[in-house]
Design a protein around this nucleic acid. Sequence first.
DNA 1: AGTGCTTACATAAGCACTGTTACGATGCCG
DNA 2: CGGCATCGTAACAGTGCTTATGTAAGCACT
Lengths: 166, 166
Amino acid sequence: MAEDHPLDPTQQSLWRPLRLLQASMDADIARIYAEARIDGLKPSFAMELLRLHAAGPMTITELAESVGRTHSALSQKVAAMRSAGWVQTIAGDDGRSKKVTLTDKARGVVGRLAAEWRATEAALTDIEAESPYPLSRVVSDIERALERKSFRDRIAEKLAEDPAWG
Amino acid sequence: MAEDHPLDPTQQSLWRPLRLLQASMDADIARIYAEARIDGLKPSFAMELLRLHAAGPMTITELAESVGRTHSALSQKVAAMRSAGWVQTIAGDDGRSKKVTLTDKARGVVGRLAAEWRATEAALTDIEAESPYPLSRVVSDIERALERKSFRDRIAEKLAEDPAWG
DNA sequence: AGTGCTTACATAAGCACTGTTACGATGCCG
DNA sequence: CGGCATCGTAACAGTGCTTATGTAAGCACT
């Protein structure tokens, strides 16, 4: 009998709704991209293209650092973007490095890309305004709380207190 | 021209920090699981195992509905859980269906599984308490806002207002 | 009983995404 | 020259889903 069992902790969860919420918003963003029908443009390219547009040509390694990935990951991404016609790689100052630059095709769409990004942010701002609690504050508060003590350490501490964990 | 020195919209983003925050918290949860070293237990199994523990044996289809996936996805997941020794499938009332039930091995760890879940929630509650703005309220406020108008529609509206979208 | 529809499940193949490790090639610099 | 930095690429890892197909059981109707 289910009533004998402990309550399902997954039923009164805050973490899960947060995940689901974000997943559904992510899906909506993906939908916007899909509807925009910019041929061959993957949403995951947007960040890099906007960065390159804003900061100008960069080497692979610079780009990798700027988005927090390994050079290898970025090398592959740049290759994909290149074969989709969004970027070119041209010789850099240093013979070893190559500057990644936007193609004309890319320059033709970054405006819309930026518009999409702004629209997403604006929509989020509107949503935020419909709640008395500012999302941006909550995010930065949580970030600061995690700087004081990491989420992992917090969970580990709670676990240590739980007799069922023993 | 603005295009000579374009602002990078990705630099003043709320959406991205939110994603990164959640990703890093997710990674911490995964780390807790990894440290627990419950042999062969994937974090993605936890939900289903706790559900089964709380609600008792269910068919694949019931389980699929309960977590919002297709039966095929769950069929594969159950197969993986079965071969890892967490569940058994026994004949159901209906000859077509099978009840998924926890094994003794699984019953031996659901307590710790539930403890992990509770610890995660408790850690989150503590973090929430360190901010004057309740995360849970923000989440439900946003959910309600999105019921009124979907994120997709909001973005689309913002886009329509943006001359750069053309 | 036979026919055909529906339900429940299993399985195979494939895809999208993301990343890693390892290795090699090339160029820079002391 | 030797060692380091930069980049490219191949091979692989792995999750988690979808689609398509197959199989078996129930079920309604005749």
